[in-house]
Structures are given as structure tokens and as C-alpha cells.
Amino acid sequence: MRRDTQLILCPVNLRHAKANFNAYDEAVAMAKRRGAKLLLATIAPEMERNLNVHDSVAYWTQQLRTFVAEHPADGVALETVVRTGAVHRQIVKLASERNVDVIVMESANPKVQDYLLGTTASHVVTHARCSVFVVRGQDVT
């Protein structure tokens, strides 16, 4: 029996200026097809590398707003959230707290030959209670 999808979580890593956002594009398309709400999240580090960032949550909230403005999710109900901590743990925790139906995320380190998935994606797939859709980057060889 097919479950209705009401909430899709899409974590995005905004730390890479030239990042590929294939998972975000897929999550938006999936939300449109399923009539679901999209929960877009970014996880801020507990200790910023750049010591000029005094309020990490405020900084990453603004970065996430900028991202949404540059990549609109037309026709999709969208909510943003910023968390701090270990990325893999915060994704699983957020999905559980919000009763997410599916997580759509990128696979990290696609050039590392020893891993099928990146370590964050591996942890989320293993520990999330919901389905996880892992999007491979274009650079996979």
C-alpha cells in the first residue's frame, strides 16, 4: 500500500560555493508530484571555522534565505530550518521530530572509491525511520 507523502526533508550543504544542488532540485520536483510540503534544512557547525561569525544560526539562516531566493521552489509549500551540531545526527533527529515521510539528500564524496555512499548519507540511511532518497552527483565515475 502506498503511503501519502506529506513532508519531505531536504538537507543542503551551503558551505561549498560551487556546490551541486541536485538533491534540492529532486526534492522540489518530488514535492510537486506528491503535493507535499518541503522542509529545507542546513546544519551549522557548533564551532565556526571563521571566527568572524558570532551568531552561527543567524548567519546560516540568512544564507538559507539567500539560497531559497536564488533557487525558488515555485508551487511548493516550503519551510526552512537551521540546526547546529553533527550533520548526520541532526538530519536523523529533525526527520524524527517532524515525522518526515522521506529525506532527499546528496551523497558526499562520490570520488572516494571505497564507499558506496558518503558517511553522512550512510548514517542517515541506516538510522532514519523514514525512506531516504540519495541523489548521486554528476561527477561519479
Rank of each mutant, 00 (worst) to 15 (best):
M1S: 00
R2N: 07
R2D: 09
R3T: 03
R3G: 03
R3D: 09
T5S: 00
L9S: 01
L9A: 00
C10Y: 12
P11A: 08
N13V: 06
H16T: 14
H16A: 12
A17Q: 09
N20A: 07
N22R: 07
A23M: 06
A23C: 07
Y24G: 00
D25C: 04
E26W: 04
V28W: 04
A29F: 02
M30C: 00
A31Q: 00
L38E: 05
A41R: 09
T42P: 12
T42F: 14
T42H: 15
A44V: 05
P45W: 10
P45S: 05
E46I: 07
M47C: 01
R49M: 05
L51G: 04
V53M: 10
V53K: 09
A58L: 11
Y59H: 15
Y59P: 08
T61E: 08
Q62L: 12
Q62C: 07
R65K: 14
F67V: 02
V68C: 08
V68K: 05
A69Q: 15
V81W: 13
V82C: 15
V82I: 15
G85L: 05
G85D: 00
V87I: 14
H88W: 11
R89H: 02
Q90R: 10
L94R: 02
A95E: 03
A95K: 02
S96W: 01
S96A: 10
E97D: 15
E97T: 11
R98V: 07
N99L: 12
V100S: 02
I103G: 10
M105F: 11
S107W: 04
A108Y: 09
N109R: 13
N109Y: 14
P110V: 12
K111Y: 11
Q113G: 01
L117W: 12
T120N: 10
T120M: 07
T126G: 03
R129Q: 05
R129D: 06
R129Y: 00
S131L: 15
V132P: 07
V132E: 09
G137A: 11
G137D: 11
D139I: 12
V140R: 12
T141A: 11
